[in-house]
């Protein structure tokens, strides 16, 4: 390598290679991804978020929420759990057998063997697939996040450090908009000792005129405004909450399968 040109060529080749692999490849593979469907159904996934949620993402971005929160559910493994759906004609034999078998945390093969054993004594079973990992234990999602989850996000706010909890599934955990607003206004009022900064600047404190606004926050005494005043969220705060409540990782997809609970049908 005596002249600059050969150095240039080597650098060009090396960078070009990684550019093709880590830029062009993903752009072609993921950048042109289209809608998929929820596993075993024809429901399209993901659903285009409403306008408020899209605007809320901009508030999320502008205030750097991703500095402390991630939006990516992690998954360590996948297991099969065998569940009895009908005891059949010999319930005693079946319950006998059940007490001897391991029914939870099985691989797919172990599960089908267990199911076959139960079937042999007349019981009907169902094999339920479940994701495992710290995030599932914490109730932060039913499966890992996959690229389809972010199809409508602009910009995608994955985050890289969890100083606070993961928010990818916050819309499933927290269905009360008022509670999220109170949390944004005074985090310590919801979680004592929380490290989260307060976002008071997304709210207005104003004199109550006539009857109190339906939007006004209900806060514990220590955080409440003085008498005769009320705290109402700005449009930004409302959009942000709309965005958060729209975040879900709760439907199964082909690339991240699990058996949903039939709660919706009960």
């Amino acid at each position: 390598m005596k002249n600059g040109f050969s150095v240039f060529c080597v650098a060009l080749a090396a960078l070009g290679l990684s550019w093709i692999g880590l830029v062009l490849g993903p752009v072609l593979q993921l950048g042109h991804e289209s809608l998929t469907t929820v596993l075993n159904s024809t429901d399209p996934y993901p659903i285009q978020p409403a306008g408020a949620a899209t605007l809320g993402l901009q508030v999320y971005k502008a205030n750097g929420c991703a500095a402390c929160h991630t939006e990516q559910v992690q998954q360590d493994g996948v297991v099969c759990n065998v569940v009895l759906s009908a005891p059949g004609l010999h319930p005693d034999d079946v319950s006998n057998l059940l007490s001897q078998l391991d029914l939870n945390g099985l691989t797919d093969q172990e599960a089908s063997i267990a199911a076959a054993k139960i079937a042999a004594v007349g019981g009907k079973t169902e094999i339920r697939v479940a994701s495992t990992g710290g995030d599932m234990n914490r109730g932060w999602g039913l499966r890992r996040s996959v690229s389809a989850d972010y199809l409508y996000d602009q910009p995608v706010q994955l985050g890289s450090v969890r100083i606070g909890p993961d928010l990818a599934d916050i819309g499933t955990r927290q269905t009360d908009a008022k509670a999220i607003l109170a949390h944004l206004y005074a985090p310590q009022s919801c979680t004592a000792g929380s490290l989260m900064p307060s976002f008071k600047f997304l709210f207005v404190t104003r004199k109550v005129q006539g009857s109190p606004s339906p939007d006004a926050l209900a806060l514990p005494q220590a955080f409440a405004p003085p008498d005769g005043f009320e705290i109402v969220p700005t449009q930004d705060a409302k959009n942000l909450v709309a965005y958060l409540m729209n975040l879900h990782v709760n439907v199964p997809l082909y690339e991240a399968p699990f058996t949903p609970s039939v709660a919706a049908n009960k």
């Binding site: 880590l22 752009v27 993921l30 950048g31 972010y150």
Partner: peptide
């Protein structure tokens, strides 16, 4: 180009940012 001028769709953004 890929993030600000013609933003790519979805999670490919994050990949480019990491790269």
């Amino acid at each position: 180009v890929f993030l600000l001028v013609w933003p790519v769709r979805g999670v490919a953004q994050a990949v480019i940012d990491w790269w």
